[in-house]
Design a protein around this nucleic acid. Structure first.
Lengths: 194, 194
DNA sequence: TGAATAACTGAACGCCCGTTCAAAACCAAG
DNA sequence: CTTGGTTTTGAACGGGCGTTCAGTTATTCA
């Protein structure tokens, strides 16, 4: 056997995924060709198929890895007070999404370009994330820390609000990440209260 | 001169725009071909060019008309109390967007497929809409009706939250439009308060 | 160094793309 | 019923698409 270490595939593979991530985020899955991705990597189009079964798998893997990263990084807040757990969630969501704008963009924009099976899997992971937030809200309602008529709606409302940040927030702007976290946490805290 | 009334163009034109709106919303601008749009209308691809200069113009006109409709329909709330004006805005936003999910979807998803000039124009209109909300928030802060550290951020946060509704709300579900309006208004009202 | 395997090239496959345009079909007015 | 403008067809243009694969190059192990 030859070439198990030092092989180019260890380098080219990540580069393919990086290029695809950036190009899909910038121009959209349907508008990006395999040849464009290959050119970005500095390789011919055929070589991409050493690293992905097809274009669809490339998109799906990017989205799935993003969701798995998200679920793995999500802090376990069991045991704390609902208000504290909610604050942890809000600050985590903002910081995590801020660090990977391209992956976030793809995860929210390219759902319709997934095959039905792949879509179902991504939706399953997304629901896990939503459930984590909803559990906090339900616990808060149960202990009268929060006043919410429908925790499912509130979950979706808060996530939409927080995720919207990625469309405009850039670190170079007038606001720091901390500023944004503080501002949003202030609004979220009030919105779930009495 | 012949064929000024009863001409097919009065019928085909709107049908082209309807088909494009639906297909763009469903599959994305880049993934939809002129031949698909033509097939939906029941015509050959070449005939579309009697109604649009090119595919880009078709997208731009759809987005621009949506934004103009939005700005036209936006209730003039000058003179009322900030809290009342905010409620009017929230309920209007939810109802208006609920009535045209395809146009909303396109307006938020296809920005990157616009040419720079067209993008600038849509952004200009979008900013007008945001400014209408921000004015309400600023007036509310000025009169101490609202407690908000940064009305620009709050504007973006609220619009993101409200617009997110279109991704899940369908009239056939367990909640009526009125339910959703009430729920969101409750959260918004609290989030801007003390 | 030679053999084996991994990585990549370059060309080809069949297909679809946006757009153009001469010719045909259609329709209402005179 | 002719006329003349409107609308549509159908074919063509050049080009790009995702994917495959035989052949070439590069790298490591024995």
């Amino acid at each position: 056997m030859a070439r198990t270490a030092g092989s180019h595939s260890d380098i080219t593979g990540p580069r393919v995924r990086d290029a695809a991530l950036r190009l899909f985020a910038r121009h959209g899955y349907a508008a990006v060709s395999m040849r464009q991705i290959a050119a970005e990597v500095g390789v011919q189009a055929g070589a991409l198929y050493n690293y992905t079964a097809d274009k669809q798998s490339l998109l799906f893997e990017l989205m799935r890895n993003h969701m798995l990263d998200l679920l793995t990084a999500l802090p376990d807040t069991r045991g704390g007070a609902p208000l504290t757990r909610l604050e942890t969630f809000v600050r985590f969501h903002i910081a995590f999404h801020h660090e990977r704008p391209d992956a976030v963009f793809i995860a929210y924009m390219e759902l319709r370009n997934l095959t039905p099976d792949n879509f179902a899997e991504i939706e399953r992971l997304r629901r896990q994330y939503e459930d984590a937030l909803e559990k906090v809200l339900r616990d808060g309602v149960a202990t009268s820390s929060f006043q919410l008529a429908d925790t499912k709606i509130s979950t979706l409302a808060l996530i939409a609000m927080l995720t919207g940040i990625t469309t405009w927030f850039r670190s170079e702007g007038r606001l720091s990440l901390q500023d944004v976290q503080d501002q949003y946490w202030s609004m979220v805290r009030k919105s779930v209260g009495c």
